[in-house]
Structure formats: structure tokens, C-alpha cells
């Protein structure tokens, strides 16, 4: 029987991009662009990436890292303000174990000709399977991948 536990934690990441807010926002709103930086990458096999970018819409990602266990991301969009803000809740599941539930706020602010992106994640890390340090590191890598996608 699984010993149940929940650890709550919040972190904020900021990244500045040369691209204007509309272009950075579009990298979240356009599934073909988002797929490139959000789910694809060296060593990752993407089995599914589908969804509806609208308030109340779901997004499903199914992927594996180097043939490992199935990893699932189930996202629900709560708030979308074009070019300004996206708020979504999501769970991560590895194999049969749900490892986290999170609420994530992205704010897109003009910074000169570019964009300051602020990511705030309020998370519940479950049953000892995950922790806030790993999640913060994961988002850090994703925001770097987003930067590369914006340059291409």
C-alpha cells in the first residue's frame, strides 16, 4: 500500500526573450510550435500530443524517455488572455503513479522590443515520487528550449 504524502511548494522563473509578446505567446498557442520545444527533444519519444488551446480545453501528452515508463501530462486550461497570460492546471503521471498536480501561471510582459516571461508554478508533489527542485529544473530546461524555438 502506498504511503500517501503531499508536499506543497511554489517557485517562479523569469526569462527574457528577444521576440515580442505576440510571438512568445504564439509558441504556446500554436500546437506545431509548442510540440517542438515542449515535448520533443533528444532521447524523448512522443506517443501523443493533442489538445485544445481554449479555456476549459484539455491537452494530453504521452511520451517516454529512452524507452522508459510511459509518462503522461494531462493539462486543463483555466485562463487565456491573448499575448498576456495563460493559466493551466496539470498532473504528471509516471507508469501508474500520479506524481504531481500543479497550477501554472505564465505572464508575458513587454521588455523593450522583447518579452519578459514569468512562470509561477504552485505545486502539490505526491507520495514522495517528485519534488519541487526537479520540477523547477525541468521548467528551466523547457524555457531554454523555448528560446531556441523562437530563434528558428
Amino acid at each position: 500500500m502506498t504511503e500517501r504524502s503531499v508536499t506543497h511548494a511554489t517557485f517562479t522563473l523569469e526569462q527574457t526573450y528577444d521576440a515580442p509578446p505576440a510571438k512568445v505567446f504564439n509558441a504556446f498557442a500554436d500546437p506545431a510550435i509548442k510540440r517542438r520545444w515542449y515535448v520533443e527533444g533528444e532521447g524523448w519519444q512522443v506517443e501523443e500530443f493533442t489538445g485544445e488551446f481554449k479555456v476549459g480545453g484539455y491537452e494530453r501528452s504521452r511520451f517516454r524517455f529512452r524507452g522508459g515508463e510511459l509518462i503522461r501530462n494531462d493539462t486543463t486550461y483555466h485562463d487565456i488572455v491573448p499575448n498576456e497570460r495563460i493559466i493551466f492546471a496539470y498532473t504528471m503521471t509516471i507508469g501508474e503513479n500520479r506524481i504531481s498536480a500543479s497550477l501554472t501561471t505564465f505572464e508575458f510582459k513587454p521588455a523593450g522590443a522583447g518579452t519578459k516571461l514569468i512562470c509561477t508554478e504552485q505545486g502539490a508533489f505526491l507520495d514522495g515520487y517528485d519534488n519541487v527542485e526537479a520540477r523547477e529544473g525541468g521548467w528551466g530546461h523547457l524555457l531554454e528550449a523555448l528560446g531556441r524555438a523562437l530563434q528558428s
Partner: peptide
């Protein structure tokens, strides 16, 4: 508002 609620 948007909130994440955990009931244990």
C-alpha cells in the same frame, strides 16, 4: 481567481 485545492 484560479486555485489548486488539496484535501487530505
Amino acid at each position: 481567481s484560479v486555485s489548486l485545492a488539496t484535501v487530505e
